[in-house]
Design a binder for these strands. Structure first.
Lengths: 254, 254
DNA sequence: CGTTCAATTGAGAGCGATCAAGTTTAGTGG
DNA sequence: CCACTAAACTTGATCGCTCTCAATTGAACG
């Protein structure tokens, strides 16, 4: 609820979906005029949230579904004590709150990691989308499946890989996803996640995460600075983690 | 491929969807005649597979999507060495292969844990489903979201809970899911998963899984026999794992 | 300049892994 | 009905990766 207050609705003339800067990337499949016009009407607000703001809260019933337009966020589940597990990071183009739209409650929270821009869609009209826009309905299913795909990979890493492998896996995953968005220069990308976030994503303690990063840095596998990550030896990292490059086929953007 | 060979297509008069014994459970939402007739046409075969058979294989491109009609299966990812992580267990009513239907490759395998009966749907006609049967399209999205929901819970357990908590979480999850299907008597249910499977699902070694189960047995939290599990102290288990009871709302069955 | 938060480093403890035998159970064939 | 076998389950002993505890440093901020 505190977090909710931090969500600011922006009632200035909203970005026209047809002019959406994200949509212009060749990564996203072109939408027909009809699709665009529906998405435009489906969109009820454009929001901004500050780092740390709660976008969706576990156990609550959100009336909205969001597309992350800009910035980073993360999905997580918390335990009664202070343990928490980050389920995955959300980057521009990702859909948030699907579980809430289809069940009535969501069982995870979503928090902004940087300042984020969100497109809010009216959950009540999701039905209309399925009824009259099958291509968009398919896109929703596509995005939901992709979400599961990420969590699958994270579960493998957390359950069966060593600390170094986990760090390598996460950094490669972010590298691949950001590269698709054109947000990598050389092999370097801005990474707003702190070591606490990384630890919570990998199921490691903060201290051990730090020591692991230091060790990998000394080995030349990666370079690290508090606000960016650089892949030092991509081949060795991929071999070590078993992570293949993401495919770069076009994808939908709601 | 070996596993694929073990999939036996059954060309005897197939179960009529309207007569599907699973669908008769009050757990599943009633389908209209029109929905039933489409599902019936969407269904291209009814298969049986023996324990250990590979239903879907990581990296392959399966032409089918399956609903598990009877038996248990599990989704997993394997590493180059012999490590593997079970992502979740599939029980009757679960949809398998959605990721393969929407991308072209699936990034996880699915193996039969018991003898299973599967309804095979033609992936190519998923498009027709989305185009002409919005209510079913919504059901597909519903099932996909529920799949992610399970993996989320498993990731929390594996990443941030102790061995005892993980075992408790898994047994409670199975208990809840099986209870919804009417497959629990008292607090006891048949569990075809071996300790190796449980270990692979929880990210633990086989030895430690065994020792943890023994300890929980001595504490009266659970009872264990090689082919069934009984919840000994549900309250204490739920408190310890933070796992609330599943909701029992009606759900779709494809 | 205190304060605070992220990163870093050292030391020691412990949970869970690995190694190594056993034991029970189920299935098979004599 | 009884060896024989293989798979699953148990249990003990030891190792080590990762955790926790404890400080220190550095950067950002009011």
């Amino acid at each position: 609820l505190i977090g909710r207050a931090a969500l600011k609705s922006d009632h200035r003339p909203r970005t026209d979906c047809a002019q959406c800067p994200l949509r212009k990337l060749s990564l996203f499949r072109p939408f027909s005029d009809e699709e665009l016009s529906f998405v435009q009407r489906f969109k009820v607000a454009e929001l901004k949230a500050k780092p740390g703001a709660t976008i969706l809260q576990e156990g609550q019933d959100s009336p909205h579904l969001y597309t992350l337009l800009a910035g980073w966020a993360f999905r997580f589940k918390a335990l009664p004590d202070d343990r928490r597990q980050i389920l995955d990071f959300a980057l521009p183009g990702n859909l948030l709150g699907m579980q809430g739209a289809v069940f009535e409650k969501i069982e995870h929270s979503v928090e902004a990691l940087t300042e984020v821009t969100l497109c809010a869609f009216d959950r009540a009209r999701l039905w209309e989308l399925f009824n009259h826009h099958p291509s968009l309905a398919f896109d929703v299913a596509w995005l939901a499946s992709r979400g599961e795909h990420f969590v699958d990979g994270n579960l493998l890493a957390v359950g069966r890989q060593t600390a170094e492998e986990r760090v390598g896996h996460l950094f490669l995953q972010l590298y691949d996803r950001l590269a698709a968005l054109g947000a990598v220069e050389g092999k370097k990308f801005a990474c707003p996640a702190s070591q606490r976030h990384i630890a919570d994503a990998l199921g490691l303690s903060l201290v051990h995460t730090n020591k692991t990063i230091q060790r990998m840095r000394r080995k030349g596998l990666i370079r690290w600075s508090p606000d960016s990550v650089e892949i030092g030896d991509e081949g060795k990292l991929r071999a070590m983690t078993g992570r293949r490059e993401d495919d770069r086929r076009m994808r939908p953007l709601l």
